[in-house]
Design a binder for these strands. Sequence first.
RNA 1: GGAAGGAUGGGUGAGCUGGUUUAAACCAACGGUUUGCUAAACCGUCGUACGCUUGAAAAGGUGUACCGAGGGUUCGAAUCCCUCUCCUUCCGCCA
Length: 419
Amino acid sequence: MHNIKVIRQNFDEFKKKISDRNINIDIDKILLLDKENRDLIQKKENLEKEKKEISKKNDKSLFKRSKELSNLINNLTNDQKKKKSDLDLILSNLPNIANSDVPIGKDEKSNKVIEIKGEIRKFDFKPKSHAELGENLNMLDFDLASKTTGTRFVFVKKDLAYLERAISNFMIDLHTQMNGYTEISPPYIANSNTMFGTGQLPKFEDDQFELKLDDKTEKKYLIPTAEVILTNMVKNQILNVRDLPLRFVASTPCFRKEAGSYGKDTKGMIRQHQFHKVELVSIVSNDKCLEELERMTDCASMVLDKLNLPYRKVLLCSGDMGFSAEKTYDIEVWIPSENTYREISSCSSCGQFQATRMKTRYKNDKDEILYPGTLNGSGLAVGRTLIAIMENYQNSDGSINVPDALKPYMKNIKKIGDN
RNA sequence: GGAAGGAUGGGUGAGCUGGUUUAAACCAACGGUUUGCUAAACCGUCGUACGCUUGAAAAGGUGUACCGAGGGUUCGAAUCCCUCUCCUUCCGCCA
């Protein structure tokens, strides 16, 4: 969420920048509501002052006036709360604004490829898709999942399940042992306020799996990414700059409705309602966001380097970024069967946007209270890494070689499907 | 699921028979005095949010709210009432 004080001070600049994010909201109304809100606060507080003085005097002749004041204050407070909530509603639906070094553009066509790495394997046979490979091995079972659950779910079996688990463990070890992240095993369920903090609510409620609860007072959701729960670990608190940066890593299932992507990637396990992901989250002082974003992106790409998978790094344009991001790098891995790169990680700096929503602050050396920067990135999506390994490491007989880096995590099995 | 008790500033913890509480006191922290250095002692500072305001800025001044959250009673609520959340203890169930 944007800080209203900052908007107030640089309104024209703000209005111009927010328009790059493809939105259709009456921005001028913000200024009006803000003014009305503050005027009402002023009026209300003047009356509260008078009332307080009467209360101190404890003089019966003034009690009548005090009663009047209470009514006036009540009315003003109601008006003021209404203005404030109208204002907050607009603000909470506004996306973050793009950092100055982000290309302006409407969709992915304006994204910029920054780096291409790794060698694309030349096959002397026609590479199969992961779905074909997995079903032939009887280790991916989509039909079984439709029977027990529905579409966009999958059963992973036998050595492929082992491989999936190995991928996750390998990634966590890398980030905890080499990259300085602290491992967390978090809840997979978040409450509304937590979902608001990272920006999933209120705008993207349709994308979330909501749980049906006996208690109707609060809603709870399955996390669409561990970013939600890891970032909100610091919500509603004031950190000390000495404790920053905070770096967390977790491997969790993620649950997404994939609303609005009907007919997209229906075959295989590219786009599922449930998938595993190793997530990286950093909380940093507000001047370190971009620096940390580079570091985080390097941590994520390091995984692909070690797995010897070809990939490219893409800087997203203003129109293609997520709601909370100020700058995003996607890492895309080579998928032979599609003859293209597919997203396997998305690393974003959210600047102070999420911290403002979460009410997370920190004290710097001068005891000033500031909003920290928050960053999140996949390090990496486990399901898609599994796909990438299957397809890039496949043999003509349909078996799959285990990447060297993963062998220690799989009792040195060299090949999957080699019976 | 049943029963009981609790939630106060960074921490400990009074107040809780409504109006000298403007939330005491202690600890921690920070600044200072003293000191050869450390310690001790003494003095001072010591929350957050929002509004208004002085100032070029740095930095001030001032108002209101906040004692788990939200409502209510009252001229007046940390204190009384209601709802909710969370915590502790005991019982039951359970991986």
